[in-house]
Design a protein around this nucleic acid. Structure first.
Lengths: 231, 231
DNA sequence: CTCCGAGTTTGACCTGGCGCAAGGTCCGGC
DNA sequence: GCCGGACCTTGCGCCAGGTCAAACTCGGAG
């Protein structure tokens, strides 16, 4: 493994307050790994023996229900920790993480976690802030699932992906990783058929453009209206 | 305020590992308060200046959506901490907590939180474990909302309340706090009409008995089957 | 005891969006 | 360049469950 550059992680929230020596120390204990699109980073139910930092790419967190149905719980943008099950007192990963695009991770053995929490200033705080945000978003998602119509949920879902990972592209903003209709269906609790129909309708109205696995939002503002945000 | 009894909180998870002196210290800083059924313990959006321990009763955590719709996020059984927003790095409560039955709380000013985390062994760990469980349950709820039919969701919801707070009563197990059809609807993302129809049907089949605001489950096993748990 | 409002029940109707089915299109591999 | 699989689109029928409307019942206040 070649030497990792400190600048990779120094500016990220969990490590923001650390000095060079500490960063170096952390990096020296890390294992880096590349994940091809679609491969598992870790699998729900497995022993949670490592925790990860997503350096590049997007991770998709998936729950597989007893019935075999899949639900996409969330997407993780680069720079965040994932697989922090040990922090929450559990021995196994509660969900599976899949690389939604080619991804790069650092990871450390779980036994180092307590040390990170206590040794590194700001690490704990930032981590809990992240968990808090996730809780918050989960609540929003639940509320949306419970009360909003399918079209609003899909619109909100697309907008969220754009906000988290969108990049400017000629004619609009593109979601920076491959997304299929089926994926959106698994996020919004609907079927790929319905998602396809909605996207077609939106495309006809000039709100989005989409080729296979790619979505470009051309009229974000109009989508926001559709998503049911209160004026 | 009369002197609080140490035995009230000594056995609870967050304080389990503390000695009498520490318990005493914690109690001396606490404010105790009674909440009538239906009154707010704290309100979402307010400055999170205190955190609470629910000593007795059940708290209902509610999100009010911009549209005015309500969603009941979860119920908190006695013995748990609530309003721990400060721990997650937020300045305001993200949701409202209402006493679902007459309730008794202890509370402390937010500024004491960091001290609790660092001074008291096991407090941090137990807290994170609790947060982990809530995350986990939220994921399950989302998955259920996204994939299960209404009847299964309502069955699962009733069962969960029974498991968390049920008490034996002649002829079955009763949910230990008042629940209306509308409440169940707000938990399961449906309407009070549909919930009413379901409960009527179940009552006809002898699975439950319900009078106004009270539900007694007489055949838990059959309800479990309805809830779609995999055999 | 009576009144009143919150909670519940039930019926009739209507529709969003799911299931099914059949094709179309793009892309990567050989 | 061709083939095959993965992904996307679209039409049609149907029904779970939402909406609207109306009446009933319980239990507490006075």
């Amino acid at each position: 493994m070649k030497k990792l550059d400190e600048s990779l992680i120094a500016p990220l929230p969990p490590f923001r307050k650390l000095d060079r020596a500490q960063i170096r120390e952390i990096l020296d204990q890390a294992t880096s790994r590349r994940h091809d699109e679609g491969t598992e980073i870790f699998r729900g139910g497995d022993e949670a023996d490592r925790f990860f930092l997503l350096l590049d790419g997007v991770a998709r967190v998936v729950r597989v229900l007893p019935g075999g149905e899949q639900v996409i719980v969330r997407h993780i943008p680069p720079g965040q920790l994932i697989g922090i099950a040990p922090a929450l007192g559990r021995a196994t990963y509660p969900a599976t993480a899949v690389a939604a695009s080619e991804a790069l991770t650092l990871s450390w053995p779980t036994r180092l976690w307590p040390g990170f929490m206590s040794r590194y200033e700001g690490f704990a705080t930032e981590t809990w802030a992240t968990v808090g945000q996730r809780l918050d978003q989960l609540h929003d998602d639940m509320a949306a699932l419970a009360t909003q119509a399918v079209e609003q949920r899909v619109a909100a879902c697309v907008l969220r992906m754009v906000n988290q990972t969108g990049r400017a592209v000629e004619g609009g903003i593109e979601i920076a990783f491959p997304v299929t209709r089926a994926n959106i269906a698994e996020m919004t609790g609907t079927t790929l058929h319905t998602v396809s129909r909605l996207l077609s309708a939106w495309e006809k109205d000039g709100l989005v453009e989409s080729r296979r696995k790619r979505i470009v939002v051309t009229q974000p503002h109009k989508l926001v209206l559709l998503s049911g945000a209160t004026a």
